[in-house]
Design a protein around this nucleic acid. Structure first.
Lengths: 222, 222
DNA sequence: CATTTCCTTACGGGTATCCGTAAGGAAATG
DNA sequence: CATTTCCTTACGGATACCCGTAAGGAAATG
């Protein structure tokens, strides 16, 4: 089993809860805690320098603001910082976020090993996640697993996201085309952009562009 | 001080944390807990029937889904149900939501007595909130208090929200006008709706309708 | 190499929006 | 009651979006 685990989570009560349950239900000897992303990062660095690196990082995504000056303000930033320093560390996210697309992106973009939704059975799932990740398997909460396997989701490319982002920022189709031309992104004609938006509207069953933006924002894609 | 308090919150660890700290730092004798809205409601009703009603309800807003059949699925629904049964009960919300407009609406629409943001100092604030509410004062978290006092926010009427909602659902201005006519809501001409949207766009500095919807969704107004 | 398929782009007509102007009415003011 | 102010509604031109069609080119197929 993992020897040394770091839990990053700003709410003290949850933090302790995780530490307790890891202590009781797994053979992990050393569980450290951090309430700030920056602290978590420094602990990782120190541990690595001392040649006693953490095997696993369990982190939340959102950390509330505080009086302290912060360099890392989100779990994602923490993960990226730690991963560049120590690429082989295992990562499990434990957070409220339950939008499938968003969670999926954490696996593909940040290369996390497990994702557990906070909730009634969250701590139980977390135990399983730790075990699975230790055995080099990935883990996602049950409530998300179904959305992951069944492939009924329309596959959005980065291009689509970018297009929707610009649209939600108030640019016209023509302006988006101009922007794509400047950035050497293709296709960039007004006609193509229009076509792509049409396809998106069809897939999301949106009545018009406004509806499309509202829906994709609700789904957490923007 | 309050004699009997109910804490509704689905995460067990937080629930216990609140109960502990209320026990340590206030003179409250009886603190009960509920992990489901329905349970909380039943406890309130039972207590009222037994002539030993709760003085104060502390509740979260979001409760994750579970296997159980649920009638009340959010803290808001719980609050409204409890308030109709026992109008004089005091309510404090303890939740992650930190969008000022949204929180403001809880005071005006649901008539809550206190709002505390979950966060590092959340539990400390919760103690203060309990004390203030006991002394018939209302309480809001420090991070929101500033946004509450300074009145720089454009005042949105229900009409505006409704208008934006329909717009985000993909209705055209004409369709919204027709809907308003059927509902006897005035103004309902396409021209007036257009004008109102214009004013909203000006106030929010939105470039067009899409931008407006995206912005208001981000602000938590929709 | 010929053919097919897919993608990008252009164009045009219909519709919705954006924006200014103006008429008519209700409410407020004196 | 006369006047002012505000609100609602109507209208028209400019612009942007919606939708179908079609031409040209790249990539894939055989």
């Amino acid at each position: 089993m993992f020897k040394k685990v770091l839990v990053a989570e700003d709410l003290g009560s949850i933090n302790h809860g995780i530490a307790n349950i890891l202590d009781d239900r797994t053979g992990i000897r050393e569980v450290q805690q951090a309430q700030y992303c920056d602290d978590a990062y420094l602990k990782c660095r120190r541990a690595l320098q001392d040649n006693k690196p953490f095997d696993l990082l369990i982190t939340d995504l959102s950390f509330k603001e505080s009086h302290r000056e912060r360099k890392l303000i989100s779990g994602i930033q923490l993960i990226e910082a730690v991963k560049t320093m120590q690429p082989d560390i295992k990562i499990i996210i434990y957070s409220m976020e339950d939008r499938p697309q968003k969670v999926k992106s954490f696996f593909t973009d940040q290369g996390i090993n497990g994702y557990v939704c906070k909730g009634r059975y969250g701590l139980n799932e977390l135990i399983q996640a730790v075990i699975d990740v230790y055995n080099d398997k990935s883990f996602v909460s049950a409530q998300l697993a179904s959305a992951f396997t069944k492939n009924n989701m329309f596959e959005l490319k980065d291009y689509d996201i970018l297009l929707l982002k610009h649209l939600s920022n108030g640019l016209t189709q023509e302006q988006i085309g101009d922007y794509f031309k400047r950035q050497r992104i293709s296709p960039n004609s007004t006609s193509s952009i229009e076509k792509r938006l049409n396809k998106l509207k069809y897939n999301f069953k949106a009545k018009n562009a406004i509806h499309l933006i509202a829906m994709t924002k609700d789904l957490g894609l923007l």
